[in-house]
Design a protein around this nucleic acid. Structure first.
Lengths: 346, 346
DNA sequence: TGAGAGCATTCGATCGATCCAGACCACAGC
DNA sequence: GCTGTGGTCTGGATCGATCGAATGCTCTCA
């Protein structure tokens, strides 16, 4: 088997393999990159030499020559502990798996303490450390997308360019509006008619999109939305306050169902209900958004809209492949539909 | 400002900068790597040329020559959605930040569908894609550590080598036993005397370590541990079953406090209490382990042992630095102490 | 028989940085 | 004046892969 401490020895190179197989360096290179160029018997001979020596091409050398690092940059923001961040975990896992299938790896970086949040993107690209980026900004729009586009930086976004629907870069997004529609339908089926919305400020276009699903579907069901909407920041505290405010009205006006822009807000509502000695379930329902781990393990378990992150990752990587191969993408945008994970709170 | 589509043009190289500054390539290289070798006025001239051209050294070329990629490999396991996995999120963020300060980046990879889980490590190292690894296996021991050590692979572990305390590689770990001790003390202060342990099977050495904190501290307080312990897998369902079993005894024998090996188990206990119409708080207490997001947002919010992951990451990177500089590490192991995040369930 | 086509393989140059050895210069000491 | 020393800077070789052009070879067909 392998010698101990082998990794302190010098590794075999193309030249080593070539000598072992009795061919030239280029032939070994071809055996790896375009095997169909070789005569079958030569290919076998080279393969045996490669296996015998345990050879793997040096990525730095290949990268230098081909001008491609086979790395995809992904920015991870400073660790804010909330449910949305935990959501990224699922996405990152899927992304890593998908990129590997395509022969790439994922490189993580942060914005650092720098004033200019674009700087790290530029630096990584200038030094040819990565071939492209995956940009994710799920809460508000993509502040970087615009700048990156103008700079000619290759990237694919998770999240659509709200401010500029005709943006040229490829993107994949989840239909938040459709997700909320699912939630409303679900509560209507459960005989709820006064269904409230607890979401984000008007500034968040994602928030407005999700909210629009509530407004539209409520009206389609012939239900009123008046005085049933609350807007604030994405915090448990706001969810809690909003629920209390919505419930502090005459009994007939009280909502019996809550649809939220995030699981964090939904958790706040559950806490507000607990403050009042209430538990969501049959008569009172709460639906979150993101299907975070917290939604799954809390008691009672939270019904939540689940984004198909695995599929998002796959599609993002597909776009990346096209982009890096300089193939034109006929339809560089894709909207996927979420599902509803029904649990105890509804 | 910068020209649009600049990244499709060819980037400046050392030679470009050298010409611009009227010096040789080597001098530019020195300006970057050992500025003290240059005369101050030359350094300024070179710096100006660098700034003017917006030059960044090509990582592939540097990596090829210096035989160092400045990348640290980190394996992310297939996305199992549980509270422990979310914990890694915090660690990864901190790790990325710490590595950047040290001039490194983090590269993610998976074990893939391969039979041999060591293969990806070997492949990345053979191809010189990474300089070292960070290995994390928080649930059971480090199955890879042994193999990696024998292969001479440079790595630092988060989690101590339970099966071989004298293992030669550097590692950083959190004192789970001390964390549980904190939890027990906290409940004793709150006047609990029948405090149960809900943890993992005997096979898990981490689990045994945590449990030993409970056993020892209970006895130090002169409290009995008999018939107050449950062991099973790390699932909400087991936590729930265990709590029911522990409570299905005569009233005098019932535990009033629960200390758990994980937040997942604690969530199961909370659910079991809910099944019985009980809510943890004053008379009944539950303490989790990991301080996951779920612990923070569920209702009632869960008291939990918090691992100092940010500090772990910093120390791991410090060890990595020493390791890669081939400096001997006098004391290559470090145990950090967790804290207790006190919330509503206690 | 010899020109031409097609395939398998080889050779030299190259990507962009750093290593290494040595050149140049100013200044001190004998 | 000549050697020695230390601080600066330079040019060529090198890391290990791929690119591009060219070679040798076999086989076909006039």
């Amino acid at each position: 088997m392998s010698t101990p401490a082998r990794h302190t020895d010098s590794a075999p190179t193309l030249a080593t393999v070539a000598e072992e197989a009795g061919v030239s360096r280029q032939t070994v290179s071809n055996a790896l990159n375009s095997p169909d160029l070789l005569r079958p018997d030569t290919l076998v001979r080279v393969q045996q030499a490669i296996d015998k020596l345990g050879y793997s091409p040096n990525r730095a050398a290949r990268s230098l020559r081909t001008r491609s690092s086979q790395l995809i940059g992904l920015r991870v923001d400073p660790a804010v502990e909330d449910t949305a961040n935990a959501l990224m975990d699922r996405f990152v896992h899927s992304l890593v798996e998908s990129t590997e299938v395509a022969g790439y790896h994922v490189l993580l970086f942060t914005a650092g303490a720098d004033d200019d949040a674009n700087e790290p993107y530029d630096a990584l690209l200038r030094s040819a450390a990565v071939d492209a980026f995956v940009v994710t900004d799920t809460f508000r729009g993509n502040p970087h997308a615009d700048w990156l586009s103008r700079q000619g930086v290759p990237f694919v976004a998770f999240g659509r360019p709200w401010d500029e629907p005709a943006a040229p870069h490829p993107w994949v997004d989840v239909d938040g509006r459709a997700g909320v529609t699912l939630a409303v339908d679900h509560l209507v089926e459960r005989a709820h008619s006064r269904i409230a919305w607890v979401g984000w400020q008007k500034g968040s276009l994602i928030g407005e999109d999700r909210r629009s699903g509530w407004v539209a579907r409520m009206h389609e069901h012939g239900l009123s939305t008046s005085r049933l909407s609350a807007r604030g920041d994405d915090s448990l505290e706001f969810g809690q306050r909003a629920a209390h405010a919505l419930l502090d009205v005459s009994p007939d006006d009280r909502p019996t169902g809550f649809v939220c822009a995030s699981d964090t807000l939904a958790m706040g509502i559950i806490r507000a209900l607990a403050d009042r000695g209430l538990v969501p379930g049959h008569n009172l329902a709460v639906v979150g958004f993101d299907d975070s781990i917290a939604a799954q393990v809390c008691t009672p378990a939270l019904t939540s809209v689940r984004q198909p992150l695995e599929q998002v990752a796959v599609e993002v990587v597909r776009f990346l492949g096209e982009l890096l191969a300089h193939r034109p993408i006929e339809n560089p945008s894709l909207v996927l539909t979420p599902t509803l994970s029904v649990r105890a709170t509804s």
